[in-house]
Computed example of a mutant assay.
Amino acid sequence: MSELVKSGFIVDKDFKTLDFCEHCIIGKSHKQSFPKAKHVTNGILEYVHSDLWGSPSTPDNLAGPKYFVTFIDDFSKKVWIYFLKTKDEVFSKFREWKAEVETKTEKKVKCLRTDNGLEFCNKQFDDYCKKAGIKRHRTCTYTPQQNGVSERMNRTILTFGCTAYVHITEEKTGPRAIKGVFVGYPMGTKGYRVWIEEEGRCRTIRNVVFNEDELGPSPSAESEGTSDQGGEESSSSSNSSSDEEQDHEVDSERDHESESGDTETLDTYVLARDRERRHNVRPPSRYEDGNFVAYALNVIDDLEVQEPKS
């Protein structure tokens, strides 16, 4: 009603204050808006944000982990990322991170903000924080906005991996760089870690040129490229389905024959008779481009030919 008065649809003198209406609240309830956050810290490690990202259905990455946990210092905005294979590794990584940063900075972690995930809310984690004097701040259920610093960082990390060009000096006449994907920084080494798809491995190297405007190809890029031909493939899917069924029947027959063949003894096996025959036998490589007449003439020269007696 107040909004209608402000808009001029209702005269102010006709407006009366309405009593609290329970039916209106039940029928028109909605979520409260989030005001702009006002949080001030005075030093490093006074307030730390943390969150876990991933799920059991997440495809394995190149090293195998399905999760990662982040620790973000509110004062310096520095981010630490640890990759995990299971959720129960969060506690051990937190202790590892806490010991490292407190040794380097000579300061103590004072407050930790997380969600209500069981990887953070368990007796082992709670007892450790209570013993270390770390205050815990948690979010309300299904309210990720209250841990917005970590949630926004998760979205940033998922877009990580720009194209990188690694300098190589293998051949003087060949290319001087190879294309890869920037995946991070190595521990204890002054360089960059770059995934080289052609080699199927990561390189730790210093001489790298980055193209930050282009993201590197994902492992599924090739499959996405083939999906563009889905229209052509779908038209022949009905015809190929019957072929696949026939192939499956043939394979099952072969498996049955191989199982029965395993029961035969070696005494009944004859190499000349039972060995697998070669197909598409070609003449020697130097005669591939010639005809069989030239091949025969070259062979006949090496034979001893008897002259006729009469």
Rank of each mutant, 00 (worst) to 15 (best):
L84Q: 01
Y67H: 07
G54T: 04
K135Y: 08
T105M: 03
S238E: 10
E151A: 02
E257I: 05
G200Q: 00
A294R: 08
L118F: 13
S310Y: 15
R254A: 03
Y67Q: 03
Y142Q: 05
R203V: 09
D251K: 13
N42H: 08
Y82M: 02
E276W: 11
V299C: 15
E304G: 06
P35W: 03
V11I: 10
R273T: 11
G148L: 02
F15T: 05
E102R: 06
S238F: 06
K87M: 07
S227K: 14
R282A: 12
T226L: 13
K108S: 07
F120N: 00
P284V: 01
K130P: 06
L158A: 09
D88G: 05
S7K: 14
K13L: 11
S258P: 01
G191V: 00
D12M: 12
D302F: 05
G225P: 03
E307H: 12
S238A: 15
V11R: 15
D251T: 13
E245Q: 13
E96R: 09
F125K: 00
F120Y: 04
Y67A: 03
T265I: 09
F210G: 07
V208K: 02
R278N: 08
H23D: 15
S227V: 09
Y295T: 12
R136M: 05
H23N: 14
G43K: 06
A221D: 14
G261R: 10
P144F: 00
D74Y: 01
G231W: 14
F94I: 05
T41S: 02
E214L: 09
L303S: 01
M153Q: 02
E245M: 11
H30L: 13
R273F: 00
K77D: 03
E307Q: 12
S223R: 11
T226N: 11
L158H: 11
S236C: 04
G161M: 02
G200A: 00
G180M: 01
F94Y: 07
K93T: 03
T265R: 12
D19S: 07
F75G: 03
K309T: 08
E212G: 02
C129A: 05
E100H: 04
G290V: 12
R277T: 05
K6D: 14
W80A: 14
T41H: 00
S236G: 02
M187C: 09
T159G: 10
Y185M: 06
M153R: 04
K190C: 06
N42S: 14
S242Y: 08
I205D: 07
G27E: 12
W195T: 04
W195F: 14
E253M: 11
R155T: 00
E199Q: 12
K36A: 12
D267Y: 12
P308Y: 14
T86R: 14
Q146N: 02
V90T: 13
I44A: 10
V305I: 15
S240C: 01
K179F: 02
E232R: 09
A132K: 07
E288G: 15
P219L: 02
S234Y: 12
K38V: 08
W97K: 03
E199N: 10
T173Y: 05
E151F: 01
G133C: 04
K104N: 03
W80S: 15
A63L: 13
K31N: 05
V40P: 01
S258M: 10
N116V: 00
T17Y: 11
R286M: 06
